[in-house]
Amino acid sequence: MAIIKLPECKVNQLKEICKSFNNDSGELINVLHKAQDVFGYLPAEVQEIVAKELNVSVAHVYGVVSFYSFFTMTPKGRYPISICMGTACYVRGAEKVLDEFRRELGVQVGESTPDGRHSLACLRCVGACGLAPVVMVGEKVYGRVAPEDVKGILAEYANL
């Protein structure tokens, strides 16, 4: 068992979440959604607590967490960057935009910058295909992004 490093209040909050779903193992995915809302990600400790509360094995919880791309076990940056890799964006040059972000940030997809400001991820279709290629920083959507625009987008967050 990993050492529980979570503060007591967070642990209680997590237990409350489980309770609000009647500690029903069938609600595991809904519980994990809420837990990720609270913690930003799903570290091993969180998974262990959830497993215990819902009375399922940690392996079962880990199996579900690792199966779904929406769940992450690594913390995201404060301003997470997601590049849409849906087909519409792909054919309109999303890969070149991604390359530029990689180069500018010096991180690979799935990683965060050392200062924790940005994390880089790909996502599948936000449904704004008319604006392809699309980049999301946090909740903000940038449309028709060209590789040349990358520096400017990052500059908006440089002092935040």
Binding site: H33, F67, F71
Partner: peptide, 21 residues
């Protein structure tokens, strides 16, 4: 019931398993 990002869950038997947590 919320999905969590898995393309295969569009398949009906997979979707049902996902709904069961």
């Amino acid at each position: 019931r919320y999905g969590a990002g898995a393309f295969v869950c569009g398949e009906e038997t997979a979707l049902i398993h996902s709904m069961e947590g």
